[in-house]
Design a protein around this nucleic acid. Structure first.
Lengths: 331, 331
DNA sequence: CGGCACAATGCTCAATTTGAGCATAAGTGA
DNA sequence: TCACTTATGCTCAAATTGAGCATTGTGCCG
C-alpha cells in the first residue's frame, strides 16, 4: 500500500498533467420598473449552444484573480461596468457542459453581479431580458402562475411513470418539496431544485438526448444556450435567499428611491407580493434607510418621500436584511 | 470594432488554448464529544506547503463530476466515506495559490463534507483536529477567548499604522465589522472576513513575504499548508450560517441522541453558548425531532430521553433549521 | 371647482414568538 | 440519606408579526 506521502506527491504531478478548460460566466442582474432582468448575449453556433446566453469567456493566465477576469470579460463583451460581484457556483459535470472538448474537463465558474442602472446594453447582441421569460413558473407576484397548471400535470405524469414504487414515492416527495405539490408548500428559494427537476423530467429542451417533448416556451420558458438557464436559476435562488439577510437590493436601486420602489424591487426578485404597511414598518425599524428632504412629483397618487440607503448599517448591524412578509395572495 | 459574434468565437478557442490546473479540496467535519473537528493530512514538502493540510487532489478527466472526483480522492486518501457534501467555493487567486505552475492558472474547488461518526482515520498521516486549534479566536463557548486580547492590540496597531486618514478609517471600520471592535458586535458567521483581515494585517504566517511577525500559535492559531486555513475558515463560516436554516447538524450526530448532545453540537459549530431551556423549546416546537422510548443510562445526573431526527421534516417544512438564542455570556 | 381614484402614511390590536428564570424530577456517588 | 448533577416543566413580561382601518395629499375628469 502506498503511504499518503507518496499519494500526495503523485497528485501534485497529476494536477499539471491533467489541465482543464475554465470558463467564466456572469449573471448580471438589474431591476428597472419593478421587473427583474438579466443581461444576455446572442450565442451563435451549433446544437446545444445557440440563442440567448449569458456573457462568458475563458479564464486566461493574464487574469490575477477569477473575479478580475470576469469583470474584464464582461466589460469587454457587453460594455457594462460591474459593481457588486459575488461568486455563485462552479459547474463541472462532464455531461452537462455542452461541448465535449476532447477529454479535457471544462468548468464554468459562475458569478452573480448586481448593477444599478441599466444602460442600453452596448452591443446590439447584448440585451436585457426579464428573467421570468426563462423561468415563468417562478413569478408568483400576480398569484399562482398559469404555467404551473400544465407543469404540474406533466410532473405528476412523470412521477406516475416510475414502475418501482420506491422510485415513484421519491419522485412524489421531490415534487412536494420543490413545487409544493402533494401537500408541500412553495418555497421561493428552491429555484434551482425546481429547474433540475423539470430537467430530469424531460420538460427542458436543453436536456439533449431527451425526446422533443412538446416544450412550449409559454409554459416551460424560453431556452438558453448551453447550461445557462441552470446558472440563471442558481443565481435567482441565491439572490432570493440573500436579500433576506443582507441589504443587497440597494445595489439595484438608484441613490434615492421611494419605499414602494424598494418594495417592488424586492418583490421582483423574490417573485412574491408583500404586505405594504408591514414592509415599510420593517424597513423603518431596521434603520436601513433614511429620509431625504425630497418628494416624488408628477406621479399619480400622493407623492412619496424619497429615501436613501444608510450605508452605515453595513457597519452597525451584524446582518441586516429583509424578512419577507407575504400577503395572503400566496396560494 | 469586433462584434460580439466574433468575440465569442475567439473565446471558445481561447478556453482550450489556456488550460488550468484544477484541484479539489475537502473540509471534512465531524463533531464528537462536543468538539468540532476537521480531518487533516500531513503535507510533505517545501516552503508554503507543509505541515497540516486538508485532503486534496487534482481533478482528472475520469471524474464525471466534480463532486464524484472529490469523493474518490478523499476515500482513497483518508479511507473516510463521505455522506453529506456541498460545494463551498472556488479559489483561484494567482498570488495565493502556493505553487506558481509556470503560467498555468491553478484553481481549487473546495467542498464541505459532514460525517457522522469519526473513524480512527485510516492512515497515520490523516488525523482529526479540533478546528479551533487553527482559529482559536473563533471559540466563544467559554466566554471571550483570551487570544483576542492580543489580537486586538495588534489589529488596532495595524489600523494606526495607516498614514492616510481615510485608509485608517476604513481599517477601523473593518475591525468593527469583523472583530466587533470600535463599538461593533461579534457576528459568528464572519469567520472568513476575520481570517482575511488577520492575513492582511500580517498576523498569519502563511502570508509569505510578510515579515515574520512573532506569530504565536497560541494566539493566531496553528498554520496550515498552502491556503488551507482560508478554506477552513470559509467552511466554518458557511456551516455556521447554514445550521440556522437547514437541519444539517443531524449529519454529524448518531441516529439517536439527547437534546443536550444536539445542543452541544450546535454550540461547537457556532462557537457560542445557548440558553438550554429555550433551545429545547425551539427544537420541540419546530418538530425537528421525535422521542424514542429509550433513555440514556450510566451518566451522571438525571437520564435524558433519546431522540431521533424526523427525516420527514425535510419534506414538510420549507426550511427548518435553528435560530440561535445566545445566552447572556456573549460579551 | 367638486368629486374621484390612487398612493402614501399613521395607527391599532390580537396572536405569536422571544428571552430569562424559577421550580421540580430523577439519576449517581459518598 | 444527603449532596450534586442534569433533565424537564412552566411562567411571565417584552418584542415581533400579521392584518386591517383610517386619513392625507395629488393628479385627473367632468
Amino acid at each position: 500500500m502506498t503511504t499518503a506521502d507518496d499519494t500526495l506527491r503523485a497528485e501534485a504531478g497529476a494536477a499539471l498533467a491533467n489541465p482543464s478548460a475554465v470558463g467564466l460566466v456572469a449573471v448580471i442582474v438589474a431591476a428597472t420598473d419593478g421587473e427583474p432582468r438579466a443581461l444576455t448575449v446572442q450565442v451563435p453556433g451549433q446544437a446545444t449552444g445557440r440563442g440567448d446566453g449569458l456573457p462568458y469567456g475563458p479564464l486566461v493566465p493574464e487574469h490575477p484573480t477569477l473575479e478580475r477576469g470576469l469583470r474584464a470579460w464582461v466589460e469587454r463583451q457587453t460594455h457594462q461596468r460591474l459593481g457588486y460581484v459575488e461568486q455563485l457556483y462552479t459547474f463541472g459535470d462532464r455531461d452537462r457542459q455542452g461541448e465535449d472538448s476532447a477529454g479535457l474537463h471544462s468548468l464554468s465558474v459562475a458569478y452573480l453581479a448586481l448593477v444599478r442602472e441599466m444602460r442600453p446594453a452596448g452591443l446590439a447582441e447584448a440585451s436585457w431580458r426579464n428573467w421570468y421569460s426563462y423561468l415563468p413558473w417562478e413569478d408568483w407576484r400576480a398569484g399562482r402562475p398559469e404555467a404551473l397548471a400544465e407543469i404540474e400535470r406533466k410532473l405528476l405524469a412523470w412521477a406516475e411513470e416510475a414502475v418501482d414504487p420506491k422510485l415513484r414515492r421519491r419522485r412524489e416527495d421531490r415534487l412536494g418539496l420543490t413545487f409544493g405539490l402533494c401537500g408541500g408548500a412553495w418555497n421561493e428559494e428552491r429555484v434551482l431544485e425546481r429547474y433540475e427537476l423539470l430537467f430530469e423530467a424531460g420538460l427542458i429542451p436543453e436536456a439533449q438526448g431527451q425526446p422533443g417533448e412538446a416544450c412550449n416556451a409559454e409554459v416551460t420558458g424560453q431556452p438558453m444556450a448551453f447550461d445557462h438557464r441552470r446558472v440563471l436559476a442558481t443565481a435567482i435562488g441565491r439572490l432570493r435567499g440573500k436579500i433576506k439577510y443582507r441589504p443587497v437590493v440597494f445595489e439595484l436601486l438608484p441613490p434615492t428611491f421611494t419605499l414602494f420602489q424598494l418594495q417592488r424591487t424586492v418583490e421582483a426578485l423574490s417573485g412574491t407580493e408583500l404586505h405594504k404597511q408591514n414592509f415599510r414598518r420593517l424597513v423603518a425599524q431596521q434603520g436601513l434607510v433614511e429620509e431625504t428632504e425630497n418628494l416624488t412629483s408628477g406621479t399619480t397618487g400622493r407623492p412619496a418621500r424619497l429615501m436613501r440607503f444608510r450605508r452605515e448599517v453595513l457597519l452597525e448591524r451584524p446582518a441586516p436584511g429583509f424578512r419577507l412578509t407575504p400577503s395572503r395572495r400566496q396560494s
